[in-house]
Structure formats: C-alpha cells, structure tokens
Amino acid sequence: MSLLNYFKSTKPNSAKIAKERLQILVSHERSARSQPSYLPELQKELLDVIKKYVQVDQDDISINYESDDHQETLELNIVLPENI
C-alpha cells in the first residue's frame, strides 16, 4: 500500500487551490468596482423600509447591478417569509 502511495501523487496541488480562490475573489471584486457607490446604502435603506411591514433579514435581500453599453439594470430580489 505504501509503495502504491509513493507512486500516486497524494500531495495537494496548492497552485490549483490558489487559482480557484483568486478567480472567485477577483471576479467578485471587479463587479464591486463597477457598481455605483450608493448601492450598499440603498440596500440598507430598502431593508429598513421592508422591515416595517414584514420580518426579513439582511440575507433575504439581494441587489444586483449590471451594466452594458445600452442600459443599466438594478435587480432587487426579496425573499418573503413563508407564512404571512
């Protein structure tokens, strides 16, 4: 068994892990860069307004901002609790 292990590369490929982590991080940070700076504030205020009427958490609201040459889209997604 140990002889087999010797030939089989059991060493984790740390470069691969590094690449995967960086790809996720960099794409996340790039999309954050292109977003308008008021977005976090907007998200907070929207949450406060909705909370007046229904009980939701920070995680239940997601805001996506996308832009291309023609238009800018602001997508708001609110997950409401099941039994209201």
């Binding site: 060493k11 470069a15 691969k16 960086l22 790809q23 960099v26």
Partner: peptide, 16 residues
C-alpha cells in the same frame, strides 16, 4: 510550478 506549488504564467494571465 511544475510541482503544482506555484501559480503558472498561464494561471496569472488568465486571472488578470
């Protein structure tokens, strides 16, 4: 890089 211990040129270029 060959041992999988360091990001390769291609990796870095792909990311950046």
């Amino acid at each position: 890089v060959k041992l999988g211990e360091m990001l390769s040129v291609d990796d870095v270029q792909e990311i950046l």
